[in-house]
Design a protein around this nucleic acid. Structure first.
Lengths: 186, 186
DNA sequence: CCTACTTTTTGATATAGGTCAAAAGGAAGT
DNA sequence: ACTTCCTTTTGACCTATATCAAAAAGTAGG
């Protein structure tokens, strides 16, 4: 899906509005393993993933990487808190496959949010949806067995669970790699 | 804090706008143990807690209540997903102490969101903040010991952790009552 | 103050999943 | 095809927390 189609599934924009909004985004091709945001940095850009996969992760005290979220096709990606508050990010944002992204700076996004009431509504709906998904993950993580959590993963991210490293998924689900490996072979 | 003060800490409203917005809310006094929303029902009202405490919870298959969130003074309370999408709620919303609430119906809220660009912005910021808090809880729950989770609780809800039943807190933190009891006495 | 009911604490035992270590399997470059 | 590096699997053992059960402490109404 392209970004225009994505926008209009949430709210309606006039033809001119839509063109104006789209003109603020830039297309970018990004290579595997590229870090878009580092922990401690302010996330200055919001990305729409047209093709590819990204993830956000943080480092535990012992240095282990904990995957916080996966971003597949047709989602907006950023260190959300850092972007919207322009505060230091708690997360790294990394590209896991060669990807096609549409990028918009914080300043341009603020401008669009202020210019178009509908854009503000779009942003609200988008954040609401993210909230729903995080709550779903929380419920899955909090009271389910390793097996059930893996099932949640495969249903929530059907296109992603076979494309990324086992260790990334394990930390996303709050279990060790070894446990996930054992779960996977039933 | 009253609701007007709360609103203007997020965005600026003109005097007239603010009065119009406030006129859409109704004050309500609610008794302990009152259920405001039931699982399966559509949540038709958004509440601002001026005084008191509420919680949302759901029932696991085995019938156990799992507290999903606590709502203390100066926060908006609802079954968020159900309210914003007008879909059946996954949660009960219950009042835990005699409380003073300001209430607004979905229809009136939609009207305000459509009428005032700033109201839409307010809603976005509010949801963004909720997202941040849910993510924080997720990180706390996912990789921390029972003791650390309890510390998260007391720092996140300092005014609440001594006012509600142990069992409610335990299920909120994803542990049994017995474990929390043992954790509490160090 | 007594009774009934609810919540919290304490104790004993069981278990899912963690940790540590090493082997096996894959992918990439020369 | 060989080497190096990284990821996944397998095995043995261990620990934090769950479960079950019962005692103790708190709370509310008569």
């Amino acid at each position: 899906m392209n970004i225009a189609d994505f926008l209009i599934t949430y709210v309606s924009f006039s033809h001119d509005e839509l063109n104006d909004i789209l003109s603020h985004f830039e297309k970018e091709q990004v290579q595997k393993n590229k870090l878009l945001v580092k922990q401690g940095q302010v996330c200055r850009t919001l990305y729409f993933v047209e093709k590819g996969i990204g993830r956000s992760y943080y480092l535990k005290e012992d240095g282990k990487e904990i995957t916080q979220w996966f971003f597949g096709e047709d989602v907006f990606m950023a260190s959300a808190d850092s972007f919207f508050n322009q505060s230091p990010s708690d997360y790294y944002v990394e590209i896991l496959e060669e990807s096609v992204l549409y990028c918009i700076s914080y300043e341009k996004m603020e401008l669009l949010l202020a210019k178009y009431h509908q854009m503000e509504k779009f942003a609200r709906l988008l954040v609401t949806q993210m909230l729903t998904k995080v709550v779903q993950k929380l419920n899955a993580i909090q009271f389910q067995t390793a097996k059930e959590r893996y099932d949640y993963m495969t249903s929530e991210f059907p296109n992603i669970s076979h494309r990324v490293a086992l260790g990334h998924i394990a930390s996303y689900l709050g279990m060790t790699q070894e446990t996930l490996s054992r779960v996977r072979k039933e």
